[in-house]
Amino acid sequence: MKLNYYVLWVEDDDSWYKTTSELFSETIIDYGFNPIIQRKKKLDEVVEEIHKTGLINFDILLIDFNLRNSESGDSVIDSIRNNNIFTDIIFYSSDKQSIIDSIKEHLFEGVYHSDRKELEDKFEKVFKTTIKKIEEINSMRGLIVGETSELDALIEEHLDFYIQPEFIGKFDVEKFLSDKIFVKLEAKLSFLKEEYSNIGVKALLPHIEAIRKWELLRGILKVNKTHKAYISEFLSINARYQDDVIEIRNKFAHAQVIVKDDGKEVLKAFVGEEHYEYDDDSFKKIREDLIKHRNALLKLKD
């Protein structure tokens, strides 16, 4: 799930930028995303960025169309059109008609325009359309995870039937288990023990499941609280990591979209005999939890 929301903002008025960017950051946070705003003060800096990166890292562009001591917005329109940039853009100006005229002149489609005083409202509307695109990508990712999980479940369902004596009795299950399961597990155990003996715990980390890594980290930190003042606070924040992160991932790996009686789509996750339903509000909570735990881990690293 994409948690960071990247904004490229071209604005040369320091005071107005500071006030307005704080409002926009609050909007992004309110929807459960982490705002990362990169500011530029000149339009030619945007043109440079276009040639350098194609602006592929940004979710939205905010551009003051008539900056002081800068090229006109026409130059940016030409660069965007000529380099196949498909990022959503809001051009704004106190003279909105100048934007409209320029867009028509350059036959430039698929962009938004706003008067400066209406920018806050326009930003929220466009922002909501862009996160739908993000969610569509994640829906496809979720679809793939869900479909593969359903295939796994179908195989297990068939196995549950075909391991009955009248079927499995015709198959040399002892040889299969010995050749395909036990030998591989024994070989892996032997390998891991040798790696640990030669290199130490670091050699085992790529082979340990996520929940064991979490338990190992917490165990080490608990006996080393004096190393950093932040460790105690981290342990408190991180205490729900299993529920907020690991269990959520496990539930989503066994999830499918269902339509309720009222026509609303929800994601239904199955774990054993239990099921859990997720809607927009719970997705927002999940994003907030993921950001919280990531920030705590980054702070611990610093």
Rank of each mutant, 00 (worst) to 15 (best):
L3F: 02
N4I: 15
Y5R: 02
Y6N: 15
D13W: 10
Y17Q: 11
T20E: 09
T20Q: 12
E22K: 12
E26A: 09
G32H: 04
N34M: 02
R39Q: 13
L43I: 15
D44W: 02
E48N: 08
G54L: 10
I60Q: 03
F65S: 01
E71T: 12
D74W: 09
N83P: 06
N84Y: 12
Y92M: 10
Q97V: 13
S98R: 11
I103T: 10
I103F: 08
E105T: 11
H106S: 12
F108P: 01
G110C: 09
Y112V: 10
R116W: 05
K117W: 02
D121K: 15
F123T: 05
I131L: 10
E136D: 09
N138Q: 08
S139Q: 02
G142M: 01
G146Q: 00
S149L: 05
L151R: 10
Y162L: 15
K170H: 12
F171W: 04
L177T: 10
S178T: 13
D179R: 14
L185Y: 07
A187Y: 05
K188H: 11
L189G: 06
L189A: 14
S190L: 13
N198M: 09
N198C: 09
G200S: 06
V201T: 10
E209W: 06
L216S: 12
V223Q: 11
K225A: 04
K228S: 04
A229S: 15
L235W: 06
I237P: 03
I237H: 02
N238P: 02
D244P: 01
E247H: 03
R249N: 02
R249Y: 04
N250V: 07
A255M: 02
I258V: 15
V259N: 12
V259A: 08
K260H: 09
D261E: 15
G263H: 05
A269Q: 01
E277S: 11
K285G: 00
I291G: 05
N295G: 03
K299A: 01
L300E: 00
D302H: 03
